[in-house]
Measured scan of single mutants.
Amino acid sequence: RRRVRAILPYTKVPDTDEISFLKGDMFIVHNELEDGWMWVTNLRTDEQGLIVEDLVEEVG
């Protein structure tokens, strides 16, 4: 499975499927959606939700 790491922190918009995260958080990518969004699991918090790919980098 594809893994990505947050390069910046992010605070979710209330009442959306987004998740908040810290710089350095690792995610497993489940689905890549339109307009650069990804459905992921945050490995630190075990939370699932949407993040935008501009805020993460690939992990080898």
Rank of each mutant, 00 (worst) to 15 (best):
R3E: 10
R3I: 14
R3S: 11
R3C: 15
R3D: 04
R5F: 05
R5N: 03
A6E: 01
I7G: 03
L8C: 15
L8Q: 13
P9H: 10
P9R: 06
Y10K: 06
Y10V: 03
Y10M: 05
K12Q: 08
V13P: 06
V13I: 11
V13F: 11
P14C: 13
P14S: 09
D15H: 12
T16F: 02
T16W: 03
D17G: 10
E18D: 03
E18M: 08
E18L: 06
I19Q: 02
I19E: 00
S20K: 02
S20T: 08
F21S: 01
L22Q: 13
K23I: 10
K23G: 08
K23W: 06
K23C: 13
G24S: 05
G24L: 03
D25L: 01
M26Y: 13
M26C: 15
F27S: 00
F27K: 00
V29C: 02
V29E: 01
V29S: 02
V29H: 02
H30G: 05
N31P: 01
N31Q: 11
N31F: 14
N31W: 11
L33H: 11
E34L: 14
D35K: 13
D35R: 09
W37S: 08
W37T: 09
M38K: 04
W39Y: 09
T41M: 06
T41W: 07
T41G: 03
N42M: 08
N42W: 01
N42R: 03
L43G: 03
R44V: 05
D46G: 15
D46H: 14
D46N: 15
D46C: 15
D46W: 14
E47Y: 04
E47I: 07
E47F: 04
Q48H: 10
Q48P: 05
G49V: 01
L50S: 08
I51N: 00
I51R: 00
I51K: 00
V52F: 14
V52A: 14
E53F: 14
D54H: 13
L55V: 07
L55M: 13
L55W: 12
E57I: 09
E57G: 05
E58Q: 09
V59A: 13
V59F: 10
V59D: 08
G60K: 14
G60A: 13
G60D: 11
G60P: 10
G60Y: 13
